[in-house]
Design a protein around this nucleic acid. Sequence first.
DNA 1: TTCAATAGTATACAAATTGATACTAGATCA
DNA 2: TGATCTAGTATCAATTTGTATACTATTGAA
Lengths: 119, 119
Amino acid sequence: MRDRRSGYGECPNEEGCPVEYTLDVIGGKWKGVLLYHMIEGPIRFNEFRRICPTITQRMLTLQLRELEEDGIVNREVYPQVPPKVEYSLSEFGSTLVPIILEMKTWGEKHKKLSSIAAR
Amino acid sequence: MRDRRSGYGECPNEEGCPVEYTLDVIGGKWKGVLLYHMIEGPIRFNEFRRICPTITQRMLTLQLRELEEDGIVNREVYPQVPPKVEYSLSEFGSTLVPIILEMKTWGEKHKKLSSIAAR
DNA sequence: TTCAATAGTATACAAATTGATACTAGATCA
DNA sequence: TGATCTAGTATCAATTTGTATACTATTGAA
C-alpha cells in the first residue's frame, strides 16, 4: 500500500480510516524501529546497522528512503571521506513520537512479562 | 517475523528492542486497523469486510487467527445458521488500546491536512 | 602498499506475505 | 426450486521482504 494514489487515497467508501492512513506511513516492516532510534537525535547509517543487526543494508536503505520521501526523516550528507550521513526526525516526523513511545512502553512492559512466563 | 522462536526471541545481542517486540505482535498489515474497529465492542467477520472493503477474506482470516493465537482477541462462535462469529479484544488486547488511539489521533489530524494540501 | 572504514548501489535469488478467485454448508426467503 | 446469507477454505499468482555477494570512492593508518 505504498502508492497512495492506488491504495488508500482512491477508496471512496467513507472518509477513510485514520488508523489505516497512519499505517500507510509507518507500517513498513522496520519503520517503527528506525523512528524509535531517531528519537534521541541524529543517527548514522552504520549505527542503525549496529543497533539492529538483523536488518540488512538493502532493507535499511529502502525503509529510510521511504521515510525520507514521506517527509518524516531528514537526510544530511557531510562531504567527508569516509562518508558521513545522518538521519534525523523532521518536524513532521516528530509528530509521530507519541505513537512510537506508546509502542516502547508497551513493549517494555510485556517483553518483561513474557520472559518471566517463559521460565 | 511471526515465529518468535526464530525471529526476535533468539537474537541475544542486547536485551531486545521494545518497539521491535511490539511490532512483532501488532505489525501485521491489517492488525492495527482490526484492533481499532474492535475498540467499540465485539464485531462480526462480515462487519469487518464491510468496514474495510479492501481487505480480502483470506487476509482477514489470517490476521484474526494470529491475533487470537497471541491472546489479543477473543473469538466467540454462536452455533447458528447462518453462522455468527464475534471478535473482541481480550483483556490483554485492551492494553494495546493506547497505541491504537495514538494512531487514530495522528491519522485524523494528518489525513485532514493532506487532503487540504492536495487541492 | 595494502587494509579498514563509510554509505551506499547492483544483481540475483529465496522466502514470506499478500491478493484474486472460486468454492463450501445449511437454513431461510421468494 | 433457486437465490441469499454467513464464515470461512483452497488454490494459485503477484508482490514484498530478506539473503548473499560483489562493487564503488577516498582517506588514513599499519
